[in-house]
Write a protein that binds this DNA or RNA. Sequence first.
RNA 1: GUGGGCAUGGUGGAAUGGCAGACACAAAGGACUUAAAAUCCUUCGCUUCGGCAUGCGGGUUCGAGUCCCGCUGCCCGCACCA
Length: 808
Amino acid sequence: MYQDQRPAYDPDRIETKWQKKWAAEDTFKAEFPSAKPKFYGLVEFPYPSGAGLHVGHPRSYTAMDIIARKRRMEGFNVLYPIGYDAFGLPAENYAIKNHVHPSIVTQENIKNFRAQLQKLGFSFDYGREVDTTDPNYYRWTQWIFLQLLKHGLAYKAEMPINWCMSCKCGLANEEVVNGVCERCGGQVVRKVKSQWMLRITQYAQKLLDGLDTVDFIEKVKVQQRNWIGRSEGAEVDFTIAGTQDQMRVFTTRPDTLFGATYMVVSPEHPFIEKYQDVIRNYAEVTAYRETAARKSDFERTELNKEKTGVELKGLYAINPVNGQQIPIWASDYVLMSYGTGAIMAVPAHDTRDHAFAKAFGLPIVEVIAGGDVETEAYTDVADGMLVNSDFLNGLRVAPAKAKIIDWLEEKGLGERKINYKLRDWVFSRQRYWGEPIPVVHCPHCGAVPLPESELPVLLPNVENYEPTDNGESPLAHISDWVDTTCPQCGHAAKRETDTMPQWAGSSWYFLRYTDPHNDAAFASKQAQDYWMNVDWYNGGMEHTTLHLLYSRFWHLFLYDIGAVTSPEPYQKRTSHGMILGENGEKMSKSRGNVINPDDCIADIGADATRLYEMFMGAFDQAIPWSTNGARGCRRFLDRVWRLMENIREGKGFQKELAPVMHETIKKVGDDYEAMKFNTAIAAMMSLVNAFSAAGGCTRDELKTLVLLLAPVAPHICEEMWEQLGFGSEIAYVAWPKYDPEAMKRSEVEIAVQVMGKLRGHIMVNPEMTDAQAQHELPAREDLRAIMGDKQLMKLIYVPGRLCNLIVK
RNA sequence: GUGGGCAUGGUGGAAUGGCAGACACAAAGGACUUAAAAUCCUUCGCUUCGGCAUGCGGGUUCGAGUCCCGCUGCCCGCACCA
């Protein structure tokens, strides 16, 4: 044994040293071409805000960094890229306030983000950085838009959209949360505007089916499925009495058709205007309609609200199954945006219809036996039996459904139909800082896509970034940019002044990483063939029905047009939990509980910051920050560092430590793969405790620990690796292997239970079989002592864990 | 309402149906120090010392934090979706 005086652990010095070396030597460059197997690990690229990196970023980035670093040690050619999702409102708002071009602010922010990321020692290949605001990048975003347009998936439509009063900008459905703007919390109202739309609904089924082929955490699949909202049913035509006209409804319960006692249409339903001469109380209906229009979608759909409505007096429909004439009502609980904007009401078996019928004294007819339909709607579909339904009587719900749909189709009264809740994607934004939509409006030819050779359509310089109250983009004022000629007929024409939403650039960025400097294509076929798909994508749950869904849609589309070679872009998707403030609340400036990663690094170093973020709790759960907890992680690294001062002589592992060494190698590797970083780190802490108990560790034991810890705390491990004389770079040293044989112990302590209660412990050979245990254990003195004078009836033996004695 | 998840010490959290509380944080005591910091060593769920304890009540099992049934509470998603 020898004593060794070394300088104390100094993360500042070590971390700077290794970060410089990695940058200078391009240590984490993803090789292409390469004969090695590849691994593509992806994290969501940040929006480079002025506030700088949040402690939430390193949680995701460190986790994937651990996987990426482990893969390199396992012999993979690793692509772990980073970039900047840099279009967006904050830069634009800053520009409005300070009259600085958003690109200048953006570039400054990117510089700051890059420096912060580098200080954390992530093994990104910075040579492949992408920036969505770079014309060489957004040129391809525009190119993809042109393909969508060419294939009929982008279209312009006059439609009521969600309009944020404060951003003065249209929003996608996905961006409206609880009736307010997801970004600024501003009030959202309905505004009719001509908007670019993407037909994501055409991909509803593919988006659903694709989920069965990928390895996403279940939570993500469930949320996407709910969002897409598939429901199976039928569309049925009701004739308007006295006309040949038909009103079509969608229902998931065609089996209850005999119980339809009235119909309800949305206040916006076109039949109201169409039959204004027939409707006797048209003035009343119009008044109701106006009240409904003034309400936001949120108010209209608020829960526990009294049902309101108005009868369209004089207008009746004929129930196609029994020829009965039934009244038609208008109510705002029926939405124009789902189904056909009209429903058949079956108050006996639908809670909403029941409430409405009770409120307005409409008849309730029971068609499924089993409940008391006067008191409440009977909605159980499992046990119900059809009654009062002519040829459906006596059938259960499921067969009745099948039979009635066949009957409707045969008679031409309706058809099987699948509906989705998913809406088309509102794709235009009336703002400056986004990708220009590469389209020209020509008075003769209409909306004309620009030829691909004219890409990129560059954002012009403007003086004033302020959006206008009439809903026009600031670009509309730049006449020498707006005024152009039609690429089709050559006449004077105007450019589209709306820009794309922030989701555009992030919908395909993972493809660009495979070949970021390509001028001829968004990525070469060869690069895609080698790198795609993304093997593992970690990101936030908040993007499940936004970015994650949008990018799957774009990729499915690119697959359909032969631009990419697989339908799904991501093989595996995991998600990290949020980091909360020390008070357990969500971190925010207004709550004053924001933790700045720079401060944490200055306090305990980057390695300890990374270690703490991985140790603080289960990776997928929300966890409050604890400065003390973080310091505890720093203390652990101090202890690891000091292990170098007291190295025991001898090769290999000390005999008594060999089993725990091998167990730790196995556990740390397995736990990293399962993203159970907290228990992996706990195992390494235990190992260090075991070294202390043993009076020190050997050089080989320390070597193993350093290799295991390197993915989490790379700087200190590189430094120790070098100081211990193992070489000059740990990043590509082989990941340690464990030997299952070496984990075996000759004797272990097992618990002895009597009638399931813990009563003592004995030492046994863990290899002992059940047969041996049944034979040997009852004869043992120590066991008999625990058992006392009871009579043994049965012995349950669990190898290496316990034995339970059933006695009389 | 509906879909999903969760409930374990003072705190964050461990635990393939098999010794509940690993690993940390905090706290308390001690050693070293003129002193403090750092470090090291103890203690650390409750207990009337029989036991009792994983939100509550049942059940299955030799054995339940873990599985099943019924509640309560919290978190997240969706929400009048016909």
